[in-house]
């Protein structure tokens, strides 16, 4: 029963994110827009490129959706409202999201088109930049919670949320998460206006609808991860727990899809240089500081 509730909650969440994203892109709040565009996509013919790698072409969007759903499975919405509380939840989230890369490479390579392929391989370059900055902040979070379980991580923040405890880790994690969900300004794999849609260029109809839904799921999973790791999950006064998680996740996801649009797109070489020369030293400092604080001040 829990699974159905969580799935429903995330479907609604994905819809709301789609509304928010179209608001950020078009400047007008149209609550029905994602429904109409989804219907339009479902009604449209799903074209097949010439001599595609058929297996990858079909499997790419589906694998992306599966990766997003698996990541959602370890995000707690309230005490007890979680699909599986794994003892290694934080690591599992990471493992599930690693398959986003695989799915994008498959989706880029599959249709046998130049734009798609460049988009897919660009994401690999981007991956090298963000991968470490997803893992290392999570390490610091797990150090404070003394557990990899996402539920334990949330309860460890009862006294003080991690955003105040380790703000550097929070900033690094959010930037890396935006790279993972290829949100602007790090939207190189799709890069509208530069790559003509990149990995989305050769997808039409149902397959594109699945790809877009999968991407919304990935964004939601990342927002959920940010809330779980840094914003105290379901913790909060007055309101019931699931409402708090829902509000926080929507807020984070809304900020993630909209804020980056004010910044010009970042080339992957620059992103790589910044991540490795600035981000990784900062992440290591963060781990060190968290260790020292955890030893000295018992919060």
């Amino acid at each position: 029963m829990t699974i159905i509730w969580i799935l429903l909650a995330f479907l609604v969440g994905a819809y709301l994110i789609a509304v928010l994203e179209s608001w950020a892109v078009h400047g007008r709040l149209q609550p029905a827009r994602p429904a109409f565009s989804a219907l339009a996509l479902l009604g449209r013919e799903s074209l097949l490129a010439r001599t595609p790698d058929r297996l990858f072409f079909e499997a790419g969007p589906v694998l992306l959706l599966v990766a997003g759903l698996l990541a959602v499975a370890v995000i707690p919405l309230a005490p007890g409202l979680i699909v599986t509380d794994l003892a290694t939840g934080a690591l599992f989230l990471n493992a599930a999201l690693a398959y986003v890369l695989v799915a994008l490479i498959m989706a880029g390579w599959g249709p046998n088109g130049a734009y798609g392929m460049i988009g897919g391989w660009r994401f690999l370059g981007q991956f090298v930049a963000y991968a470490m900055l997803i893992v290392m902040p999570i390490t610091a979070v797990a150090m404070r919670a003394e557990s990899l379980s996402t539920v334990d991580i949330v309860t460890s923040q009862a006294a003080l949320w991690n955003i105040a405890y380790q703000p550097v880790g929070f900033a690094l994690f959010v930037v890396a998460a935006m790279g993972l969900a290829w949100l602007p300004p790090l939207d190189l794999p799709t890069a509208p206006g530069d790559l003509a849609g990149g990995i989305e260029a050769e997808y039409t109809g149902v397959r594109l609808a699945v790809l877009r839904l999968a991407r919304m799921t990935v964004i939601l999973a990342l927002a959920g991860a940010t809330v779980t790791f840094y914003l105290g999950g379901w913790l909060g006064p007055w309101l019931p727990a699931p409402v708090w998680s829902g509000l926080k996740i929507l807020l984070v996801a809304g900020l993630m899809v909209s804020a980056g649009r004010l910044v010009p797109r970042v080339r992957e070489a620059r992103y790589l240089a910044l991540s490795w020369k600035l981000g990784i030293p900062l992440a290591l400092t963060n781990i060190f500081l968290v260790g020292v604080i955890a030893l000295v001040v018992p919060i």
């Binding site: 794994l86 003892a87 690591l91 990471n94 493992a95 398959y99 890369l101 990899l148």
Partner: peptide, 13 residues
């Protein structure tokens, strides 16, 4: 569990 998740994560990369 830990090794399995680690293997799945590392090999994707």
């Amino acid at each position: 569990e830990f090794l399995g998740v680690l293997q799945i994560m590392m090999m994707a990369t």
